[in-house]
Design a protein around this nucleic acid. Sequence first.
DNA 1: GGGTAATCTAGAACACGTTCCAATGATGAA
DNA 2: TTCATCATTGGAACGTGTTCTAGATTACCC
Lengths: 198, 198
Amino acid sequence: MTTSPRPPAAPPLTERQEARRRRILHTAAQLASRGGFDAVQMREVAESSGVALGTLYRYFPSKVHLLVATMQDQLQLMQEQLRKHPPSAEEPGARVTETLMRTFRGLQREPQLAEAMVRALTFADRSVSAEVDQVSRLTAVLITEAMGLDHPPSREQLAAVRVIEHTWHSALVTWLSGRASIAQVRIDLETACRLLAE
Amino acid sequence: MTTSPRPPAAPPLTERQEARRRRILHTAAQLASRGGFDAVQMREVAESSGVALGTLYRYFPSKVHLLVATMQDQLQLMQEQLRKHPPSAEEPGARVTETLMRTFRGLQREPQLAEAMVRALTFADRSVSAEVDQVSRLTAVLITEAMGLDHPPSREQLAAVRVIEHTWHSALVTWLSGRASIAQVRIDLETACRLLAE
DNA sequence: GGGTAATCTAGAACACGTTCCAATGATGAA
DNA sequence: TTCATCATTGGAACGTGTTCTAGATTACCC
């Protein structure tokens, strides 16, 4: 409990360690892109990354930690893309919908990877809450930036962002489990974004 | 794939079978109420229910199926309670918030059980989607009834119900993983319920 | 009641996440 | 350079979800 290995006051990694970490994340994403959550098997991640199983567990204390870290990675990539090509709509609500749907289509391109990351995210228990929180914060930033305001968002808008984030997250889950179509997801996001228009 | 054992065209259960099913669900809820998801161990569920492991798996094809069925059970109990004591507020939005917060407090009384059920629900893959969908439908009914309309809900209201359900579900997850307080959950629900006031 | 098919039981066996250990290798301070 | 510490390795071992099998029991039809 008191000695969490990675994030808090992380001792700087050597170059080799950084490389190992990258290799592991890359392998995880690759395996996930094929069979999804179940296909990310810790023994195989270790072997394909050229790392012992114990080492893998030193870098990522569980499979869920590993996949949540993968999600952080992917979110950051997405964020860079979005900053290069910001949404085109005028109204904040429409801008946010556009941004999230674009992100959605990005996930759609690697549905198995998406499944793996989202399963991990929702299955995470308290021991991963710091990392999950980081993902949540990244998402909130992504939404807020999409709004394209020139002044800080109001209290109501911040509350709306939370609901949009909930909707985004939950809609993603229902889509991944085959219980909602993309069209339905879009409608749900548009509905939630109505909260921004006030 | 083609021979799913339980839900489609379920052959009627004998009395003994119905009793076994009940015993299993009861045991599962009991174990969950203590240690949560991890404490529901299939061998122990079987033993405590006086049933062989293979039989348990015949009734519930996986641990997730078992816990999702438990959630259906609990939701139905909650629904009966709510029908006996409907919310007191006037406005649909306030009525829904009141209802969901009351449900929330119900879950709070058995937080470990709640954790087990919600973890199962969000971890469920496609093989459980029918059962998860049933939970979703129950929740939607619960919300719609809470609105207390004397006419069918409008298209906008139905869309709002979906977003409220997403918010409810996702807020529950963040609360269970310790990343949001009850107060914050209430705020999020109130925000989502603003969509009903139009 | 007798026969048959379905169900149930007990328990072994398997898969994969996770932990642990002894031996080896890298790193940094004196 | 030498030593001490920490990281890494290979692999065994453990726990729990899931599957499988052989034999007992039950349900049901004649």
